[in-house]
Every structure is written in structure tokens, then in C-alpha cells.
Design a protein around this nucleic acid. Structure first.
Lengths: 146, 146
DNA sequence: GCTTGACCTCAACTTAGCTTGAGGTTGCAT
DNA sequence: ATGCAACCTCAAGCTAAGTTGAGGTCAAGC
């Protein structure tokens, strides 16, 4: 028979490098949905290793846990996700990261202009506003009046 | 005569779009060094508008306030910064943002490979470890054992 | 059948980057 | 000289993404 179907939180931690406390936190946030033993201990699917991997990658790409939750929502909760499942979701994510890179590039180019003129002037410099829709989510209001 | 030499915190707020509370916070963090009236109210230099602008841009580029403080440390505190001062500091920052873009690009390319093979496998996928030195500063340990 | 390491919950603490509120003072226009 | 908007400080609260610790339970090996 294949290896045990379920793994403990400790094992999941070892296999992913993510702290046990973080895994519990992830469950809390809806990223993981382990079963429970009669004694109330968590039991994860093997496929959750991959699920956690996905979270790590997505984080590296700069996504927040909430965004990741919505991506993961596209995975089947019952059966083990297939290769196609993962590809679909990865591709969707790729678009987000592409957008982020584009935005960063544009911002950098504008910075170049600012270097050229030494301006950093609110009235002229296009680095303000404009891009805030896709924004690198600075908290608080960033409206420029003037 | 030219316009008043000093501006109040409210004015600085209006001119930059940054909340008064945030400006006080920035002083606390060492980003601003206003003078005080006899009555203990803050008085900023006009050049502080530009200083705050710089903070906003730097934040957009993904720098933390602490990093920004060190960049700003290169500005003269007494006299108003010259164009050359700003150019020097902007150029330094450009390098940081370039590095960030590079890292992001590399990560994306690796994601492409993962899409190709559908792996997301800890043993094969190069998206783990490796890059963590320059890392997009995920908190906590991310070592992969396995 | 008992010991012990792994597990459980819940609450409090952490850093970053602020905001909000309470309670009090300043300074400019009339 | 007075009214009142704008200023002041200090403490507490917020979100993200977790960690740490106290106090208690589970399960697997001897």
C-alpha cells in the first residue's frame, strides 16, 4: 500500500519548513482545512504539502494571505488537486506578478526622469497618484492635493 | 520677499497629502527634523515638502521607513538640499529598485518552469531557499528540510 | 499502564506603519 | 482680550503575519 494517507501537523511542518504555529495560523486564515482525530488532533492530506508550498511561493511573489486564499479557493477541496488544477492557478498568479513587475518598471522609469531633472516635485512628477489603483498598497490616504 | 521660510505641519500635510498624524510619526522615526516655536509647535522647512515626497516615492518602490532614513541621512540637514544632493540619493535608490525587479523577474521565470511541469515540488522546484538572501523579506524561517 | 513527546487552545506579544481619541495649549484674526 | 481652529502629547487601537507561553490532552512505545 502507499504511504499513510494522513500526516500530522509536525510532519507537515518538517516537510515544508513552516513552523507549526504558522500552520495553525494558516488554518485559522482559511488556507488549510485539516480533518480532526477523535482526540481533536489535526490530520492533513499529503497534498497539503503542495498547498503550503504554493502559499510560500505566492508570498515570495508578494501576495498577501487573503489574496492567496482566493487563489486556493479554485482548488478542489475533496479530491487531491491534479496537475491541471495547479497549472490553472499558477497561471492566474503569473498574471498578478506580471502586473506587479510592470508597475515596478514603470515607476522606475519615472524615477529616472526625476533623476534627470532633480525634481521630485509634486506638481510635475508623475510618480504620484496615477498608479495608485494597482498600488503597492501603501496604507493610508495618498491623495495629492496641491 | 519670497514666501514664508517655515511652514506648519498642517501646511506640509496639505502640500504632500500625508496626514498630520503620519508626519508626526515620521518625525518620531527620524525622517523629519522640524524646528519648534516657543510655544512648542513644529515648523518645517519648505524643502521638507520634497523630503516627504521622497519618502512617498521610496515607499512606492517598496522600501521600509528605516531604509529610507538611511538614504535621507545623506542629505544635508542644515542647508536646503541641492539638485545634486537629490540626484545622488535617487540614483542610489534606483539600484535598490533594480535589484528588486531583477529578483522578481527571476522568481517569475522559475514559476514559469513550475507551470510547465506542474511540480511545485519541494525537492525539485528552485523557488525555495536559494533566493532567500536578497529575499522579499518573508518573516520567520523558511528553510526546507526534506 | 504509564511515560513522554507531540499535540491542543487561548491569550498576549512582536514589527511596521499608521490612525484615533482624550485632554490640554497656541497663535492669529477680530 | 477673546474666540476658536490648529496645534501639542501620550496612550491605545489597527492590520499583517506570525511567535511565545501557560496550562492541559493525546497516542505510541516499552
Amino acid at each position: 500500500m502507499p504511504r499513510a494517507e494522513f500526516i500530522t501537523i509536525g510532519e507537515l511542518s518538517k516537510r515544508t519548513g513552516v513552523a507549526v504555529s504558522a500552520l495553525r495560523f494558516y488554518e485559522d486564515k482559511g488556507l488549510l482545512h485539516p480533518l480532526r482525530t477523535n482526540g481533536n488532533q489535526r490530520r492533513f492530506l499529503r497534498s497539503d504539502i503542495r498547498r503550503v508550498s504554493f502559499v510560500l511561493i505566492a508570498q515570495k511573489l508578494g501576495l498577501g494571505l487573503e489574496e492567496i486564499v482566493t487563489h486556493l479557493a479554485n482548488l478542489p477541496e475533496g479530491r487531491n488537486p491534479t496537475l491541471t488544477d495547479w497549472q490553472k492557478i499558477s497561471r492566474a498568479m503569473r498574471e498578478q506578478i506580471d502586473a506587479r513587475i510592470t508597475l515596478l518598471n514603470r515607476t522606475r522609469n519615472q524615477l529616472d526622469q526625476c533623476i534627470g531633472c532633480g525634481c521630485l516635485s509634486l506638481t510635475k512628477c508623475q510618480l504620484y497618484n496615477k498608479d495608485d489603483k494597482l498600488g503597492l498598497k501603501g496604507p493610508g490616504p495618498r491623495a495629492v492635493l496641491d
